[in-house]
């Protein structure tokens, strides 16, 4: 499992500014949910797929991997609509979500995390007046992307260790060793952040000027 899905190939989509890509993604999301016409939504899905494969030169495999986790939900959604409404509404809802998931996949696969984080830092900058430190927000996002797969992997390892000793399925007992590991990880992580200077925020002006950290 990985959340850092950047696929390093050279393409115009990769080179496009992260802010633009996020803005288009947001616009697409809003547009898809306002439009009720199936042909337009299907058109959008096809367009996103073309951008992904042709313009961004992403391997089909990477896209499939991104969409795979949402298949069951899409299936449930479709069945729900078939029962409650009709097939047309169901297809519309599923196509919409699929187009959006795919578009989000294109953005994450073509944009480095640092670039995405920079956009978020820029967006939260006005919150600075309330004492929010944009660099901190950015760090939290980057660390989430880093540690979610790591913790998932540790959980998997504990499950295997317990299975090797005869336990079956998901058990509550798994949570205790996992919690211990996560707490230990967090303690070292806090020290590592200190040791690597994360407690020394440099103002954006000084950062540009290349001033040493205080």
């Amino acid at each position: 499992m990985t959340l850092a899905l950047y696929v390093p190939v050279a393409s115009p989509v990769h080179r496009a500014p992260a802010g633009l890509k996020l803005a288009l993604l947001t616009g697409l999301g809003a547009g898809l949910f306002l439009i009720e016409r199936l042909d337009v939504v299907v058109g959008a899905l096809v367009a996103v797929a073309v951008v992904a494969l042709a313009a961004a030169r992403l391997p089909l495999r990477a896209l499939v991997a991104q969409v795979r986790p949402v298949w069951p939900w899409l299936a449930v959604l479709l069945v729900f609509h078939l029962v409650v409404t009709d097939w047309r509404t169901g297809t519309l809802a599923v196509t919409r979500l699929l187009a959006l998931v795919l578009a989000a996949a294109v953005v994450t696969a073509t944009t480095r995390v640092t670039a995405l984080v920079a956009v978020v830092e820029w967006l939260v900058r006005p919150l600075g007046v309330f004492g929010v430190r944009p660099a901190r927000v950015g760090l939290v996002i980057a660390m989430t992307l880093r540690f979610v797969p790591l913790i998932a992997e540790r959980a998997q390892r504990i499950r295997e260790a317990q299975a090797a000793r005869g336990a079956t399925g998901m058990r509550l007992g798994m949570l205790v060793p996992l919690l211990v590991q996560v707490l230990r990880l967090a303690a070292t992580l806090g020290e590592a952040l200190d040791a690597r200077g994360a407690d020394a925020p440099v103002s954006p002006r000084d950062r540009r000027a290349g001033a040493p950290a205080p």
Binding site: T114, L139, L185, R196, A200, R208, G210
Partner: peptide
């Protein structure tokens, strides 16, 4: 426990950003 960024180059860069290196 000490790699804080999701990808390799970004993580190496982390300390330099904290130092304010251009």
């Amino acid at each position: 426990a000490q790699i804080v960024h999701p990808t390799v180059a970004e993580d190496v860069e982390f300390g330099l950003t904290n130092l304010g290196v251009p």
